[in-house]
Amino acid sequence: MKTRLLLAALASATALTVSLPAFAEDSAQDFVDQAAQGGMFEVNSSKVAEGKAQDPTVKDFAQKMVADHGTANAKLVSIAHEQKLTVPTELDAKHKRDLDSLQNSSDPVDGPYVQMQRDAHSDAVNLFETYAKDGDNVQLKAFALETVPTLKMHQEMIEQIASTMGDKSASTKPATPAVATSDTANPSAPVPGANSFTEAQAKGRIQDAGFSDVSTLTKDDQGIWRGQAKKDGKDTAVALDYQGNVVAGTN
Rank of each mutant, 00 (worst) to 15 (best):
F41P: 03
A24E: 10
F23Y: 10
V43S: 15
A9E: 01
F23D: 08
E25K: 13
V43T: 14
S19K: 02
Q34E: 14
S12R: 07
Q29M: 00
T17R: 08
D26N: 13
S19M: 03
Q29A: 05
M40D: 14
S12K: 07
A28E: 12
V32E: 13
A36N: 03
S19H: 02
A36Q: 06
A11I: 02
D33S: 12
S27H: 14
F41H: 07
V43C: 12
A9N: 01
P21A: 13
F41M: 06
G38Q: 05
V32C: 10
V32Y: 11
T14H: 01
A11N: 02
A36S: 15
V32S: 07
A28W: 06
T14P: 01
T17L: 14
A35R: 06
M40A: 11
F41S: 02
M40W: 12
D26P: 01
Q34L: 12
A13P: 02
T14M: 06
L10Y: 02
L20V: 15
P21F: 07
E25W: 06
N44V: 11
D30L: 09
S19L: 04
A13N: 01
L10W: 00
A36V: 08
D26L: 04
Q34T: 13
A28Q: 05
S19E: 00
S19D: 00
V18Q: 04
A8E: 03
A22C: 07
P21K: 08
S27D: 15
A28T: 05
L16R: 02
A36C: 09
F31K: 04
A15D: 00
P21S: 10
D30K: 09
G38H: 05
L16A: 13
M40Q: 14
L16N: 01
A35V: 13
D33L: 12
F23G: 11
A13K: 01
G38F: 06
E25V: 06
L10Q: 04
E25S: 11
L16I: 04
A13T: 03
N44K: 15
L16T: 04
A22G: 09
A9R: 03
A28L: 04
P21C: 14
A8V: 05
M40N: 09
Q37Y: 15
A35W: 07
T17S: 11
D26W: 09
G39P: 06
L16G: 06
D30I: 04
A8W: 04
A28P: 12
S19G: 05
G38W: 05
A13Q: 01
A11T: 11
G39L: 10
A13W: 01
E42K: 08
A13S: 06
A8M: 08
A28V: 03
D33T: 12
A11G: 05
F31S: 07
F23C: 12
A11W: 05
Q34F: 10
A9L: 06
M40E: 14
L20F: 05
A36F: 05
A11V: 07
S12N: 04
V18L: 15
A24M: 10
Q34N: 15
T14G: 04
L16P: 00
F41C: 03
A8S: 09
A22F: 08
A11D: 00
A24K: 01
V18C: 09
V43R: 08
G38C: 04
A15N: 03
A9V: 02
F41Q: 07
Q37V: 09
D33P: 06
Q37H: 13
V32H: 10
F31H: 10
V32W: 09
A24P: 02
A24F: 09
A24W: 04
E42G: 12
G38L: 10
G39I: 07
E42P: 03
V18H: 01
F31N: 09
